[in-house]
Amino acid sequence: MPRLTRLRLATGTATAVVAAVVLAASPAAADGPTVSQPHIVARFDLATGQSPENITVEPDGSADLTFAPARQIAHVTPDGHMTIRATLPDEPNADTPNLKAATVFGIVRAQDGTLYVNYATGTDKTGIWRIAPGGGAPRQIAQLPATALPNGLALDERHGVLYAADSVQGVVWRVPQAGGTPTVWARDAALTPVPVTGAGYGANGVKVHDGAVWVSNSDRGTLLRIPVRGNGSAGPVETRATGLDHVDDFTFASPYGDTVFAALIGDSEVAEVHPDGTHTVVLTPADGLANPTSLAVHDGTLYVDSAAYFTQQSPNLLLADLSCGLGN
């Protein structure tokens, strides 16, 4: 979520939850992942719109980031060298829900190097766009309603589908990877923003993991799991964690368990969410975080990008080492 409406989060907006009981944070299990040696590898320029919103990692450990207000896709090497791979087309008549400005959000990478990104404009440019391996002009492959705010994006390459979390409509869209007509895959109150008192952002991050689609809800501070039925339809929404104030995107510690790392944008923290729903803060502003928005895990390394939407200081990409018990 870029800055204009997110400022409400920084002023102490109350966070509602969909479960009756909020699970308190607890110490990490002894065999859980250990986060150590956090260090910033790249700093970005707020003045040119370089607020990193979402991230995907290449096989060589380099990262592809979306710069939300600049409408750019940046490529950052492990040693911090940055190049711009693509820029989404300008929309002079942008009327993006919550934001008004044209904004690029989630990003995923296919095995062949193709990148897919969510673009929200409040016009017919809203939808999913594809960037060919190596860069080039982005091409729209699916058009979402102008009233949609496609935020997080996930790719299930095995079944050839993309999932986009719509923060305003409170739904999860499903789109063929090859492009085509979007369909509402999941609709539930647990995916919606909190009326009146919320910041206007419901479903935010989205990941495909172990036969299910997982979604974070920023307004409600929740982590949700939606089983994928045998016919591809959505099963009932399950609440797996609550009390994650102002949660943005998230990632799994490994492909083999349900431990999650979640970006808590309002407090500039990263939380480790345990399989039992409790959570522990593992990174803070003291480590260099400045309103983190998304994360990724690759080859024993945790990647965290900070957009600095509220702090207005030091947007960056931070890496940290992971070790021990990543199968949990």
Rank of each mutant, 00 (worst) to 15 (best):
T103P: 06
V104I: 14
V104F: 11
F105Q: 12
G106P: 05
G106T: 10
G106V: 14
G106R: 05
V108G: 00
V108M: 00
A110L: 10
A110M: 13
A110E: 09
G113N: 08
G113A: 09
T114D: 08
Y116L: 09
Y119A: 06
Y119L: 06
T121N: 03
G122P: 01
T123C: 05
K125W: 13
T126F: 10
T126D: 04
G127C: 06
I128P: 00
I128S: 08
W129R: 02
R130W: 08
I131H: 01
A132C: 06
P133V: 13
P133L: 09
G135N: 14
R139E: 15
Q140E: 14
I141G: 08
I141H: 08
Q143D: 08
Q143N: 12
P145L: 07
P145A: 02
A146Y: 01
A146V: 12
A146T: 08
A146Q: 11
A148H: 05
L149M: 11
L149E: 04
N151G: 01
N151I: 00
A154F: 00
A154P: 04
L155M: 06
E157W: 07
R158D: 15
V161W: 09
L162R: 01
L162C: 02
A164I: 12
A165Y: 02
A165K: 00
A165V: 06
